[in-house]
Amino acid sequence: MENNRQLTAQQLMRKVSEAWFYVTDLNLYLDTHPDDTRALRMFAEACENAKACTEAFEKRCYPLTVCSADCDSDWEWLVGVWPSQKMA
């Protein structure tokens, strides 16, 4: 994760969305192939990676889910790009 420091918010977001997309795709596959041991291993790895990418993004940019919002001084949840907006 060391090289993440050079990435822009947009690049970090792309990594987050790609990582969660991979989770979703494997999730649907496993729903109809629940005994595929190779896919089960891939899924565990995909989830680890998605969590790590999310953490890297949230640390540098803004909270993606409400419990990641910092509430020390103000309501950080309002910060960031909402679905009605486009990334700068």
Binding site: V16, S17, T65, V66, P83
Partner: peptide, 14 residues
């Protein structure tokens, strides 16, 4: 459902 401030691929239309 828990809302997440992201989409499956980023939407950026110029």
């Amino acid at each position: 459902f828990i809302f997440s401030k992201m989409t499956q691929i980023p939407v950026k239309i110029n």
